[in-house]
Every structure is written in C-alpha cells, then in structure tokens.
C-alpha cells in the first residue's frame, strides 16, 4: 500500500537530497516576506491617493482680494478680467465664471443684512473655475503663475496642499512598485541559480534519462514539481511572518489615529490576496524553474 503511494509520485532525480534546496527555501521565504510587506505598502498608498484625489474637487475657487491701494471700479473690472483671462488661457480649464455681486450679497446677507451696497464694501471678488480633470491640474504651478500675473488673486489652498501630498505619496508608490520588481527579479534569479546548480549535480542522471528517450519536458517536470512544493511551503512561512508584522503595524497605527493619514485601511480583498501569495509564489517559482531548466537542457545532449 505504502509502496504504491510512493510509486505514484516517482522521480528519477534525487532532488529531495539537493543541498541547493535549503538555499531555495531561505531565498523564497525571505522574498515572499519582503514582497508581502511591499505589496501591503503599495495597497495602502494607493488607497490613500485614491481617497485624496476624490477630495480634490473638479474645480477650484479663486478670490481677488480688495487691494490696499484703492482701485477705481474700472480698474477693478480690468483686474478681474485679467484674472479671468489667465484662467481661460490654461489648458485644463473648462469654464470660468465670475460670481455676481448679487450672489455674493446673497451669500453675505445673513451676516450683513439686506440693505448694504456691496460695491461700497471691500468685498473679495470670487471666480469659480471648472476643470476638465482635477487630477492633472498643477495647483502649485498655477498658483505661482497667478501670483506673477495678478498678485491680489489667490487660489484656495486646500487643493494645493492635497496635491502636494498626492505627489509625494505617488513617489512612494513608485518606490513600492520598484521594490516589488526588485524582489521578484531577485527571487527569480535565486530560483534559476538553485536549479542550475542542481542540473549540474545531476547531469549524469539527466544524460542517462535522455538516452532512455526522456524528453526535456519529462526532466523539466520533475524540477517544476519539486520547486513548486519547496517554494509553496517556504513562502507560507515567509507570508505568515509578513502578515503578523502587518497586523502589528495596523494595530499600532489604529491606536495612534492620525486623521487623514491613517484613514486608509486594507480591505478584505487585500488581505485575501496577501494570504494567497504562497500559491502565486509556487506557480511563479515553478514557471521560472521550467523555463530555466528547459533552456539548459536544450544545450545538453
């Protein structure tokens, strides 16, 4: 009974005794640990950017402060026109609308009462600028240019601040992608290295198998299976450590609730994907091993 079971999964290559297996286990385990952490970081940063982008409205408001030097109404009109022209000249702007004094009056009325002549008061002029897309709009640059054109006009600074945050988060996101790639490449290289070492050790057996009529696939399959099993189990270990660390970090950061920053939380799908990494790792390692083995076998007898 026992013998039958073992025969089912026969393999002529004694890969279980390979010394390179230990190397493979360590490198795959560590890679999966690092990959999980970097991936969690990527998820978190993406979530934060997404929520910030949502709060950058697809428009902005501009106010033109009443100046210290008294401008005549004509001068003031000219000045406002200049600002409107400035915004209309921008690429991403869909529409610029001057909010009528009447409307400002209406807005102000609760504070000022009905019978106030607005034009006699130093009220700001308000412009509403509708953007084609809030994402691609460079708040900072626009603010700078606006200051050069019309020093009394200013953009509300909420958008500027958020966009700065999004920008720095985006570079963090790029970095996490870079780290993911580096870990992936490093893992692939170490799998290839382990497989190549093993191929050298078993060259004689492989040659015998070839003479008996074994195809490259037949030999490669034995490597594929073995590498899958080794990678799968060592990545479970690496993944467990990573998930534990992430839980600890999540716990600490929920204690230090810092408002906007900690508003991003990994959702169930993220956790599920992180937990499924050992399986993907197994397939990735197997594919890498198969490609690497087949390439080398192609050069053998």
């Amino acid at each position: 009974m026992k013998r039958k079971f073992f025969l089912k999964n026969h393999s002529e290559l004694p890969l279980k005794e390979d010394k390179s297996t230990f190397f493979l286990e360590i490198s795959v385990g560590v890679s999966v640990f690092l990959f999980s952490i970097a991936l969690a970081a990527y998820f978190l940063i993406s979530l934060m950017i997404c929520s910030w982008n949502k709060s950058i409205v697809h428009g902005l408001s501009v106010q033109i402060m009443p100046s210290q030097e008294v401008l005549t109404p004509e001068e003031e009109l000219l000045y406002t026109g200049k600002v409107i022209q400035f915004f209309e000249g921008l690429e991403n702007v869909e529409k610029v609308r001057l909010i009528k004094d009447a409307q400002i009056k209406k807005l102000m009325s609760p504070w000022l009462g009905q019978n106030v002549d607005i034009s006699s008061l130093p009220l700001p002029k308000l412009l509403e600028v509708r953007l084609k897309s809030g994402k691609n709009f460079d708040y900072e640059k626009t603010a700078r240019l606006l200051k050069e054109t019309a020093p009394y006009a200013s953009i509300d600074n909420h958008g500027i601040w958020l966009q700065k945050l999004v920008k720095s988060a985006s570079s963090l996101k790029m970095m996490s992608i870079f780290i993911l790639l580096v870990v992936l490449v490093a893992a692939a290289v170490s799998i290839m290295f382990a497989v190549q070492t093993s191929l050298k050790i078993h060259q004689n057996i492989i040659e015998i198998l070839h003479i008996m009529g074994a195809t490259d696939d037949y030999v490669a399959k034995q490597y594929g299976k073995r590498v899958f099993v080794v990678s799968f189990f060592s990545s479970i270990i690496g993944s467990l450590f990573a998930l534990l660390s992430l839980l600890v970090v999540a716990k600490i950061s929920s204690n230090l609730d810092a408002g906007l920053i900690s508003s991003a939380k990994l959702a169930l799908p993220h956790w599920l994907f992180l937990m499924s990494l050992p399986l993907w790792t197994g397939f990735f390692a197997m594919a890498t091993a198969l490609v690497s083995v087949k390439r080398s076998l192609g050069k053998m007898m």
């Binding site: 004689n204 015998i208 003479i211 009529g213 195809t215």
Partner: peptide, 25 residues
C-alpha cells in the same frame, strides 16, 4: 529535432559498459 531524437532513442535499448544505473534507485 530534440523531440525526434528522444522518440528515436525510445526504440533503442542500451547496455553501457559501466552500467550507468541510477545508483540511488
């Protein structure tokens, strides 16, 4: 091709001078 060679080899039985058995099996 490599595949053809494998298929041809399957029709050939070889006894090596030095046996070349898989010693661990």
């Amino acid at each position: 091709s490599r595949h053809t060679m494998a298929m041809l080899r399957r029709k050939i039985g070889v006894v090596f001078q030095d046996f070349r058995l898989l010693e661990h099996l």
